[in-house]
Each structure stands twice: as structure tokens, then as C-alpha cells.
Design a protein around this nucleic acid. Sequence first.
DNA 1: CCAATAGTGTCTGTTAGACAATATACA
DNA 2: TGTATATTGTCTAACAGACACTATTGG
Lengths: 239, 239
Amino acid sequence: MSRNLTFPRPLTTVDVVILSATTNALEVLLVRRPDAADEPYPKMWALPGGFIDTAKDADLEACALRKLKEKTGVQAPYLEQLGSWGNAKRDPRGWSATHAYFALMGAEDRSRANDHPGSQEAQWFKVEEDRVKERLAFDHGEILKAAVQRLRSKVAYTSLPAFLMPSEFTLSEFQKMHEVLLGRTLEKKAFRTRVLTSELLEEVPRKKEGANRPAQLYRLKNKRRPIFFNRPITGSAID
Amino acid sequence: MSRNLTFPRPLTTVDVVILSATTNALEVLLVRRPDAADEPYPKMWALPGGFIDTAKDADLEACALRKLKEKTGVQAPYLEQLGSWGNAKRDPRGWSATHAYFALMGAEDRSRANDHPGSQEAQWFKVEEDRVKERLAFDHGEILKAAVQRLRSKVAYTSLPAFLMPSEFTLSEFQKMHEVLLGRTLEKKAFRTRVLTSELLEEVPRKKEGANRPAQLYRLKNKRRPIFFNRPITGSAID
DNA sequence: CCAATAGTGTCTGTTAGACAATATACA
DNA sequence: TGTATATTGTCTAACAGACACTATTGG
């Protein structure tokens, strides 16, 4: 069957869609492609990623984490395998396949990423709908789109938005994050009941003060695993 | 950054977890590894799959479909990307990564697969819990487990079980399929209401006769896309 | 009539959606 | 007190879970 090792091997990369959010918008971290004659898509913006280092990377996830760390200095954000894309045309150098991951980064990690002295020019781009304004290298636009769609669809039935929050936050801030991701307002009471009756958050003995009634601060009970709700929250009907 | 093309390229394969079901159990199609000196895991059972043919395969999914067709003769079953597995140890020949897919095959396609004169010994194995009795080649046991878990978790909130049914079936048979996959009985009324109020099925003008009241036969409205329910069906509570 | 399976009626419990009402800060 | 935001109360609708009941076939 497989007169195996003689098959030409596809180029293999790992790319990471690193997402974070301001109070207004979802953002993605992109890096600029090198400007060299032998590099495809020179100077264009692209997802952080690149070839697997078979000497350093024990497995695919380790490779994704390495790239994440190199670009942002962040060790352990929420990380999920997104899918893989491979075909004959996506890379002008030949048949190539990429293993894509997506990472969510809270406010503290986001600032750390901003301070990180990367070897490559890197910048946060606002995500509108499911794309950035720039045309990206390779099929990275498509991969970004898949990541954003995955995140958006999971917002309705998981606690993923929690991984985009700072370490302490109010319920209103948490609701606002959901609304930014969904692009739609949510019903306050339904949101609060849902969140508070789940085992997602715990109170911290502090309030956020302002020119109004202070708001209870909460933090995540489990910084690693998302929780799954068994009914979606959608705000108004989708029809 | 990437002094790229000089990196050693991992071995790259595509594997397919082909699932079908009898009225009693979920089953998976496995093939026997060749018995040759230069082949790893000789004579062991493994998932159908193998190297990408960069000349023939336009993309990863085309490669998965090609392997599916080669092993079963089936053209277009339900096919979904499952994930990728890659590390230094899974293949003794070196750093390797596989892109895994999973396919669901209805009764007719299942018989067609049985009749298909494959180039390699192939056989259906009963899946118990989330494994087969045999130890599989490579990390295929782990990949199978992921496929079965994905299928099982989707049973509760999608119409995936429909893709394991024959082209016409009764609601009782459909319910039984759910029960086989979940390993738990379901409440008849809740099941029927859920299915019938969705847009999943349409009646065919025929009944299934037996030594009892004849049952209405139904068929899938859309043979390609699953539908998503917005509440899970679980039978008894999960606690 | 009996056995067996198909199919329905109806009540309860949970939780999202809508929206009004109340609470607590600062200025 | 007024303004702003936090927090709660309450009613409704949708739908799963439980379980009893009726329907329709062959033997």
C-alpha cells in the first residue's frame, strides 16, 4: 500500500489565533511577515506561527505554546485546537498543512503581550464581524474567521468569555464582554441568574466603586476549564 | 525568523475513524497493517489512513475522502474534521502528525463497505465504552476514543445519529440508535416531540408492519447537514 | 381476547426572556 | 435630592422528564 517514506512530505506549520478584547471589540494579535526574497507574502500581516521544530517541540500543542510564548511572553492562556488547513495552493512553496490553535488572553496577559519585546513586529487588530481590515498572508483570513466563529458560537453555551476578562471583574463587565462578542445586548436578569447559579465564579471581598452603587467583584473559580451550560443564552431570538 | 525550508518536515498522514452502528452497538472499521520489515506496527489493526499524496489530493478533506472511498467504496458519508495529533513518538520513523477525520455511515453504506473488495484486510469492530478490545497501531486508540467521545457528546444536542440510520426508519428505531450511542434509555414522549417539532425528518407514505401496530416511516430531509437543538436530551439527569 | 409495540395527554420542573421595581453609591 | 448603575421580583414561554393512557396490528 504505502510505499511510504518516499512520498513528498507537505510543509507543516502551527499557527495560533491569539484573541483578546477591549471593552469595545474583539482583537487579534498579528505579526508582520519578513521582507526577504525567499519568503512568501513579504511584509504582510499574518497569524503568529511557523514551522514545527522537531528538535524542540514535543508535540503540536507544545509548539503552539512555544510560539505563543515567543510572541507574547504569556505562558498558559486558554488554548484550544481549532482545526487544520492543508492543500496544494495555500503556500507558494508547495503542498502545506497547518495545525491551527486559538488562544484567549485576559486583560493582564494582554498588557504583558504589549510589553513583550518580540523579535517580529506585532500588533493588535480590531476584529469586525469575523475579519480584520487587512488582507492576511496565506489563508490566515479564513483561519481567523473560523476561530472567531468558533468563539462566537461558544459564547452562547460555554464560559469562554471568562478567559477574556481581567482577574477580577463585575457581572456588568462580564455581561458587556458577552455582548461585545455576540454583537447583541443580553437580558440582565437572565444573564445574572445563569452565571450566579453556575459554579463559574466566586465573590471576592471587594467592590468596584464609582459614581454609583458599588458592584460586587468576582473571580473565576477554575482558571483552566470552561464550563458548559445546557441551554444557550442568545438575548433576543435569532430568526 | 524562519530559516524555513531547511527544517526537517514531520511525516504527515490523514486518518479516518469510520463509524457505523448495528441495532446493538457502535462499530468502527479497522484495517490490518502490512506485514513488512520496513512498516511499523506490522499486522496490527489500525484506522484507515496514510500519507497524503501531494499529487492526487487537492486538500486534506479530499485525501480523507479518497481513503474512505478506497476502503469502503462509499462516496459521500457524513464527514467531519476531528482534530490533529502530532508528536515525536507516535511513529517510530520520526516526528509525525496526522489529520484525523470521522465519518458516519448509514446502513446501506455499511453493507456497501462490507461488499467492497479492499486492497487491505478490513473488518468492523464493536466499540465498547470508547475503545475496541484490540490494541491499535500508533496512537489510533486515542484517536478512536476522541471520535467516540465527540459523537457521544453530540448525540445530546445534534442530529448526528440520523447519519447512522438506514434511508427509511421509524421513530422507535431512531430512538434506539440514540440509546445505543448514549448507553442509556430515553423518555419516549420527550424524544418524539423533540424530533417531530424539529425540521429534521419527513414522513414517507409507508408503514413498517410487524406483529403489532404498524409504525410510520420517516426519512431525513437533508442528508448532508446535521441540525442543532438548543437543549440537550439526556434521559435521566446526569448529576 | 392477548401480547406487543406505536403513539398521545397531561402534569411538573427548570430556566431563558421581558420588564418593572428597588438599592446604594457620589455629587 | 438627582443621576447612574447594581441588584432583585415576578410573570411568561418553551421544552425536557415522568408516567399513565389509548391505538392498532397479528395471532
